[in-house]
Design a protein around this nucleic acid. Structure first.
Length: 500
RNA sequence: GGUCCUGUGGCCGAGUGGCUAGGCAGAGCUCUGCAAAAGCUCCUACAGCGGUUCGAAUCCGCUCGGGACCUCCA
């Protein structure tokens, strides 16, 4: 089996993944800024890296997955108003800053649970690591790559660039950067326009503030990730993930800070997910086209034709490669919803097939089919190893759907496949769909509660049908249909049901 | 303006130079008391123009279109 290949944003090519410490992986992913509700765009990185996390574990790695919570609030527009996003919103909502942060952190966690993402190993907060951030800034100053002005500290990009490659990750050229950076107010403190804040003096009205060697203030945005990644993953670690929009300046700055402090490049593999667009435009506050997750799940948004289940969103995201843009539309989501349902219905029906009692032979009577199934199973890790191609993994599983259904319905006899192949296929599907891709049936939970009631109604309907009392049998089916429950007669005389 | 990405059938989306991606929608058939589901079959595209090659959606060039970043952003 070929080894895992990861596209590295730093080198712009796919590379074989070799961890620093054999058997262990350190992974850092930029987490949410909890100054507001998460939206659909936020779902992409967390689902993407959740699958990467799951897959690395499946490969046998012990993974430390660190995903921060940005609760300290960084600048709305650096240098201009020096407003802290969180403080500003808190005043509006008349909440304590930490109260606000707590509220949106809880909401974020709830949404992540809806998406069936695994919690990270460590979820550090920026406010909980002020000491580490100050320590790091002090080291950068000591090394001569930062300077203090009026209680604020700035990173000296020009000096860094004279000895290091600033802009390597994002493809920036330092000289161009200096001339193309937009004119902003309050830049006079900086020696150079490309410099960025490590620590910012707090204005009197600023609510979130900490004591520092340079006076009362708050940390710059980029330093938190450097400080927390260093603390929990070391001076150098394997994977750093995040959205493509963070490439510059966030990740570029992170590299610069960490490199000065730790004397080596902090990250071996940079992985960036692409954006979710809506009508071809990136979803973002500045475009006024944001769909919050709560709105998505409830359908309460003018753009939405209906509510969409978190699993549908997860499936929708995994149907495309993480490095491509993903365009949102009701039609695309509706298609995903139907596709997921068909997939999960087929798979769950197939799980119920018992190869030992269904007459499966030891060898399998259909060698061609046997080989095809084995071939498809073998492809799954190949695709996943190719830079986490979840889209192709799903396409491959979909190719099995007709077979699963025809076995379940008895059209293809279980004897066509050997018992071991059937068992293997069942566990393979579970492994890939549930364990690695983290997909769950939309209605699995609700079904359990209704199971007993449904069995009763199915019994009655069977009796009625047996007596050719179609009035009663249709009544049961039709009334259930109006309640959103579909009854289906199966080939062998059995009945199954699904929720709409 | 600079850097980079991208343009695939009605829609969404994979595609490592040669072989059917897949999903959704649509059409036909089978099964069926009816319906739904399911199975089978069909719909075979690669923005345009050149070039390289025995052969290109895939490589190169140009043109046109779309997008991201350069400012907070997943």
């Amino acid at each position: 089996m070929q080894s895992l290949q990861i596209y590295n944003s730093l080198t712009r090519q796919k590379e074989a993944f070799v961890p620093l410490v054999p058997g262990h992986v350190g992974m850092y992913v930029c987490g949410p800024t909890v100054s507001g509700e998460s939206h659909l765009g936020h779902a992409r990185p967390y689902v993407t890296f959740d699958v990467i996390y799951r897959y690395l574990q499946h490969l046998g790695f012990k993974v430390r997955y660190v995903r921060n919570i940005t609760d300290a609030g960084h600048f709305e527009e650096e240098g201009r108003a020096a407003t802290d996003k969180i403080a500003e919103k808190a005043q509006l909502e008349k909440l304590e800053p930490m109260e606000l942060v707590q509220k949106y952190t809880n909401l974020f966690h709830w949404a992540m649970e809806q998406f069936n993402t695994l919690p990270p190993s460590i979820e550090p907060t920026a406010t909980g690591h002020i000491v580490e951030q100050i320590g790091m800034i002090e080291e950068i100053i000591k090394a001569g790559y930062a300077y203090e002005v009026n209680g604020s500290v700035y990173f000296d990009v020009k000096k860094y660039a004279s000895t290091h490659e600033y802009g390597k990750l994002s493809g920036r050229v330092i000289d161009e950067l200096l001339t193309t950076t937009r004119e902003l107010e309050g830049q006079e403190e900086k020696r150079d326009r490309a410099d960025f804040a490590l620590w910012k003096a707090a204005a009197p009205e600023h609510i979130m503030r900490w004591k520092s060697p340079w006076g009362v203030g708050y940390p710059g945005w980029h330093i938190e990730c450097s400080a927390m990644a260093t603390k929990y993953l070391g001076a150098q670690f394997d994977i750093h993930g995040g959205g493509m929009d963070l490439l510059f300046p966030h990740h570029e700055s992170e590299i610069a800070q960490s490199t000065i402090c730790n004397h080596q490049a902090p990250v071996r593999y940079w992985v960036h997910n692409n954006m979710i667009t809506i009508n071809g435009r990136k979803m973002g506050k500045s475009y006024n086209n944001v769909i919050k997750l709560t709105e998505l799940f409830s359908g309460q948004h003018p753009i939405l034709a209906k509510a969409f289940h978190p699993m549908t969103i997860r499936f929708f995201i995994l149907q495309t490669h993480y490095s491509s843009t993903l365009d949102f539309s009701n039609e695309a989501l509706l298609a995903a919803e139907k596709g997921l349902k068909r997939l999960m219905d087929a798979v769950e029906g197939f799980y119920k097939v018992n190869p030992d009692t269904a007459g499966a032979s030891a060898a399998g009577s259909n060698a061609e089919l046997e080989a095809k199934v084995k071939g498809l199973i073998d492809e799954l890790p190949v695709f996943m190893n190719d830079d986490f191609s979840t889209a192709r993994v799903l396409a491959t599983i979909f190719e099995l759907v007709p077979l699963l259904n025809s076995i379940k319905d008895g059209i293809t006899t279980t004897g066509a496949l050997s018992a071991s192949t059937i068992t293997n296929l069942q566990s393979t599907l579970r492994l890939w769909l549930e364990t690695i891709l983290g997909l769950k049936s939309v209605q699995a939970a609700d079904q359990e509660k209704l199971q007993g009631v449904m069995e009763l109604l199915i019994d009655i309907r069977k009796e009625a049908k047996g007596k050719r009392d179609f009035m009663t049998s249709d009544k049961i089916r039709d009334r259930l249909a109006t309640l959103g429950i579909q009854l289906k007669d199966e080939k062998g005389g059995g009945m199954s049901w699904t929720l709409d």
